[in-house]
Amino acid sequence: MNMIDFKTYFELLNLYSDYAMVCDSADWERWPEFFVEEGSYRLQPRENHEQGLPLCLLALESQAMIRDRVYGVKETMYHDPYYQRHIVGTPRVIRIEQTADGERIESEANYAVIRTKIDAESIVLSAGFYRDVIVRRPEGLKLLSRLCVYDSEMIANSIIYPI
């Protein structure tokens, strides 16, 4: 059993809720700050994940690539604007360990993202789970990797904003 102290678990809860708030408020400049410099963000269908296949819909392999995505979202991509609302389950700690670089936490949480266009009803954009590797840095917990595994092969052809 992986034991985690209350303070660390509270920080973990805040990481998940702050991430959702930043995405829901379209505060895109803050999104890369959740990741370490070598951090990665991937969006992968469940079928590929379960079969161990590497193909992802989106694979950003560094904080620099994540910043580039922010630039694309804000400056170069043309799309109908929409709101997002993340509903994130309570994170489950899979493993916690001390490494030479500090604390490392592997966790996962279910999520659902609701998309609302101004002139349309709300729909479920994506549902699945996050599989995260989180490390402690002097400024707090940061994502070393976030894998978003979405359940349905049928997804919107325009996932613009982070899940």
Rank of each mutant, 00 (worst) to 15 (best):
F34P: 09
E97I: 05
L60C: 08
I159F: 05
V88H: 01
L125T: 06
Y150H: 15
D27V: 03
T76I: 14
I94A: 08
L12A: 03
R30G: 00
L57A: 11
P54M: 09
L55C: 06
E106N: 11
S107T: 14
V22L: 05
L57W: 08
A100Q: 15
R69S: 11
M1K: 11
D151H: 12
Q51W: 05
P138H: 10
E106P: 00
L60M: 12
I105K: 02
V88A: 03
V73T: 12
L58G: 03
F10N: 13
I155T: 14
M21A: 12
L143S: 08
A109E: 00
S145T: 15
A64Y: 10
L57H: 13
T8Y: 03
R146N: 10
G102N: 09
Y16C: 08
Q63P: 03
L147Q: 13
W31T: 10
N48G: 05
K74C: 14
F34R: 03
M1Y: 10
I87R: 06
Y130L: 06
I87E: 07
Y82E: 01
S40P: 04
F129Q: 04
M3A: 13
V133G: 00
G102A: 07
W28T: 04
V135W: 02
I105Y: 00
D101S: 14
R67Q: 15
R69I: 02
Y71H: 12
T116G: 07
S122W: 07
S145A: 15
E37R: 13
S40R: 14
Y111C: 02
E38C: 08
Y16Q: 04
M21V: 06
R137D: 00
R115D: 06
V133C: 14
S158L: 02
E11Y: 08
R136N: 09
Y41K: 09
R146Y: 11
A59Y: 08
Y71S: 11
E61S: 14
M1C: 08
S145K: 13
L43Q: 04
K7F: 07
F10H: 13
H79P: 00
L143N: 06
A59V: 03
D5I: 10
V149H: 07
I163N: 06
P162L: 05
F129C: 04
E106K: 13
E37F: 05
T90R: 09
V88G: 02
I134L: 00
E153N: 15
K142Y: 01
V135K: 08
L143T: 05
E153W: 02
H86T: 09
D24S: 07
R85Y: 01
M21P: 00
E75M: 12
Y111V: 04
R69C: 11
A120V: 00
V70Q: 08
P91E: 03
G140A: 03
P162T: 04
R95F: 07
R115N: 09
D132F: 02
R115M: 12
Y19T: 03
E50T: 10
K142F: 00
R95T: 10
R85V: 07
S40F: 02
I114V: 15
R146F: 11
R67P: 03
L125Y: 05
E75A: 12
Y150A: 01
F35H: 00
G72Y: 05
I66Y: 09
Y9M: 04
Y83I: 04
D101Y: 01
R92S: 10
A109F: 01
D151E: 12
Y9Q: 06
F34K: 07
R30Q: 14
L53I: 14
F10M: 07
W28A: 06
K117S: 11
T116F: 05
P81N: 13
